[in-house]
Structures are given as structure tokens and as C-alpha cells.
């Protein structure tokens, strides 16, 4: 009897949690979706007309994701390959792994502060999407590195031996046998990073700024620009435009759902491919 009661209590707690999540999601969607209009998505904001458009913010988000991934993936995957395949000193490897673990738990505003002092001021990049992207690179490096490393460890030793036995050098072995075997880990790290970049605001407020000018890719990297998340903060806090804020929130939520779904599908398809 008592056991049954305990079970019911746990069930209730879980249900309440789920209800909370569902409530937040539907609240945001209900408040946000009516505010999403074609004009909002396709124009730039104008103080003269008093109109608001989030096209620059959408583009800035895409630019910063591309720039950050272009740097963090080779860097993170490269670091993982080095640590698992080359590094001889296992003590240093475990120190680095521990540091990466810790790094991924630091509040993002600290990354923002460091990014601002180092990239924007010390390296003189000013507040720009590039400085923001570089800050995001540091933030996401541990994630990409760890997921790649984990999947490197699942590549069987016998593949490596097979390649060496045929006279392949180390780099060729890694390129042809190891990396294709861990591509799923790299992609998982990549998708997780996209999710984090979409949701990041604190670090970017410091480093990428809040401008809403419409720019091309390279022009954009050199100038200040708000991503969707930062724009949400800006419109809600500085302008009191809660309709726009909720519209952005709804867009972000749908995007996050899609990214997570994609991550799941990719993981599944790789699992299936490995099993056949």
C-alpha cells in the first residue's frame, strides 16, 4: 500500500513538471504566433516609420552560427583526434578532459566578459559578430571535443590494426578509417552547438552587440549585430515590445525543437547504419 502511494506521488510530481513545460510552450506559442507576420520577418526596423522587422537578426543568427561552426568543428574534432590518437602522456590528457568538462559548466556571462576583454578590446575587434562567434567557439569547444572523443573511442582497435597492417601511415589511417567512423559524434556535437548558439544571449550581449543593420556575411562579421535571442532581450527590455519579443520566442522555440529533432534523427540513422 505504502509503495503504491510512493509511486503515485512520484507520478504526480512528474505530471506537474510536464504540465509546467507544456504550459510554457503553449503560452509562448499562443502569444507569439499571432505576432509573426511576413513584414516582421522580411524587413529591417525603422525608427522613422516606427516599424519593427527582425530580418537582420535572423541573418545575424545564421552568420554567427556559420562562423562559429566553421571554426569550432575543425578545432574541436582536431583536438579530440590529437588527444585520443596521438597524445602520449595520459596524465595531461585527463587534465585536459577535466578542464573541458569544467569549462562546459561555466555560466555563459563569464565567457561574455572574457570575450569582451580579450577579443573586443585586447585584439581590437570591437563589438562584432566575429568577436561573438569566437566567444561561442570557446564556449562550444568542450562540447564538440567531448562528443567527438566519445565516438572516437567506439571505433574498434581492430580497424586501426587492419589499416596499419596494410602499411598505412598514422594520418592515412585516421583519415580513412577513424574519422568516417566517428562522423556521427562530430555531427552530434555540431547540432548541440547550434542549439546552444541559438539560445545564447548573455555572452553575445557583451561581444556581438545589439545593432540591427542589414549586412552581408563578411560585412556582418565586422560589425555589431544582434542575434534573435539578443533581439528578444532588446525588444522586451529596452522597447517594451512584448508582441515582437513573443514572436521571436516562438520562432526560437520551434527552431530549438527542430534542431533537437534533427539531432535525434541523425543519431538514429547512424545507429541503424552501424548495425547493418
Amino acid at each position: 500500500m505504502e509503495k503504491k502511494n510512493g509511486k503515485r506521488k512520484i507520478y504526480m510530481v512528474i505530471m506537474r513538471g510536464l504540465m509546467g513545460i507544456l504550459f510554457i510552450m503553449s503560452y509562448v506559442l499562443v502569444k507569439g504566433i499571432p505576432n509573426i507576420t511576413w513584414d516582421l520577418l522580411s524587413t529591417t526596423p525603422s525608427y522613422i516609420d516606427g516599424s519593427i522587422g527582425i530580418l537582420p537578426d535572423i541573418l545575424n543568427t545564421i552568420y554567427i552560427i556559420i562562423a562559429a561552426l566553421a571554426i569550432v568543428i575543425p578545432l574541436g574534432a582536431g583536438a579530440a583526434v590529437y588527444l585520443t590518437e596521438y597524445a602520449g602522456n595520459k596524465k595531461i590528457v585527463s587534465v585536459i578532459e577535466y578542464a573541458a568538462e569544467t569549462l562546459s559548466g561555466i555560466p555563459s556571462i563569464i565567457y561574455g566578459l572574457v570575450g569582451m576583454l580579450f577579443f573586443c578590446q585586447f585584439l581590437n575587434m570591437q563589438t562584432s559578430l566575429l568577436a561573438g562567434a569566437l566567444t561561442l567557439v570557446i564556449m562550444n569547444l568542450p562540447t564538440v571535443m567531448r562528443t567527438t572523443q566519445e565516438s572516437l573511442k567506439t571505433v574498434p582497435q581492430s580497424y586501426r590494426e587492419g589499416a596499419f597492417g596494410l602499411g598505412a601511415g598514422k594520418w592515412r589511417m585516421i583519415r580513412t578509417v577513424v574519422l568516417p567512423g566517428c562522423i556521427d559524434g562530430i555531427i552530434t556535437g555540431c547540432i548541440l552547438s547550434v542549439g546552444r548558439i541559438l539560445g545564447e544571449s548573455a555572452a553575445l550581449l557583451f561581444t556581438a552587440g545589439v545593432a540591427h543593420a542589414l549586412n552581408g556575411f563578411f560585412e556582418g562579421l565586422n560589425s555589431s549585430g544582434a542575434t534573435l535571442t539578443v533581439a528578444l532581450y532588446f525588444y522586451a527590455k529596452e522597447r517594451g515590445e512584448f508582441g515582437v519579443a513573443f514572436a521571436i520566442a516562438a520562432i526560437l522555440m520551434v527552431l530549438t525543437l527542430l534542431v533537437n529533432l534533427l539531432a535525434m534523427l541523425v543519431g538514429e540513422s547512424f545507429k541503424r547504419r552501424r548495425n547493418t
Binding site: P156, S158, Y159, E161, G162, V177, P180, G181, R274
Partner: peptide
């Protein structure tokens, strides 16, 4: 070399 367990590449 041929190994104990067959190890074709995937």
C-alpha cells in the same frame, strides 16, 4: 598480416 578476428573495414 591477417588477424585473429576478421576485421574488414566498414
Amino acid at each position: 598480416m591477417v588477424f585473429q578476428k576478421p576485421n574488414p573495414f566498414p
